[in-house]
């Protein structure tokens, strides 16, 4: 974020803050759904915005704003669970050979060579890759169907930019298991985009 804009935001400019809400609200909802459930995520994120507005003056700009907002939203979600005397049971189960279960397993020969290699994608910009209308709908369906533990790590790491150390500490999960869950989530996404790029459908 540019320095001028950041200074304006820190001073509590409501128009810029509303812009922030417009850009990040849906991502924060997605981040908290695996923790508190869909029915409470909106309330949690609403509280997170209030905290963020009160604390924006102290945002140093060292991390990305999404990462800073994501940490606030996760704290709010955990506080909500404590207040309701509920526990967040993060399931980190993994199998002995974790990679055999990823979505690309069928694309290889028995010797581990590509049988169905990736298509060539049209890579105009990061923003455009996932924003086609039809693809966005498929993506939404994929994320909804994805196991909570995989989606949680994908939202934390790739959508919000939290560090692996922070994720492992928040979820009390080992780095190895977190990596396996992230790998599975990413390969599902890769398969979806690859199929879309190859066929125009998903």
């Amino acid at each position: 974020m540019e320095t001028d804009k950041l200074a304006q935001l820190r001073s509590g400019d409501p128009v810029l803050f509303a812009e922030l809400v417009r850009d990040h609200h849906r991502a924060l909802i997605a981040l908290t759904v695996p923790i508190v459930g869909i029915s409470e995520a909106e309330e949690v994120v609403q509280n997170a915005w209030l905290k963020a507005y009160q604390a924006i003056g102290s945002f140093a700009g060292k991390s990305a704003i999404r990462t800073w907002l994501g940490s606030i939203a996760i704290n709010e979600a955990k506080m909500q669970l404590r207040q309701r005397k509920r526990e967040w049971l993060f399931s980190d189960h993994s199998s002995e050979d974790p990679y055999t279960e990823d979505s690309l397993a069928q694309r290889f020969t028995g010797q581990g060579q590509w049988q169905h290699p990736p298509a060539l994608w049209h890579l105009d910009s990061p923003e455009s890759l996932l924003t086609g209308e039809q693809l966005a709908e498929c993506l939404e369906r994929l994320l909804t169907a994805m196991p909570d533990n995989q989606r949680c790590i994908l939202e934390m790491r790739d959508a919000s930019g939290l560090s692996f150390d922070e994720i492992c500490s928040e979820l009390t999960v080992s780095s190895a298991n977190a990596r396996v869950l992230l790998h599975r989530a990413r390969t599902q996404l890769f398969k979806l985009v690859d199929h879309y790029e190859e066929t125009g459908e998903c």
């Binding site: 997605a30 999404r66 890759l129 996932l130 966005a136 959508a159 890769f190």
Partner: peptide, 11 residues
């Protein structure tokens, strides 16, 4: 490229 695009996947 996909990983870079993920932050933009939410409307």
């Amino acid at each position: 490229r996909l990983i870079k695009a993920i932050p933009f996947m939410h409307n």
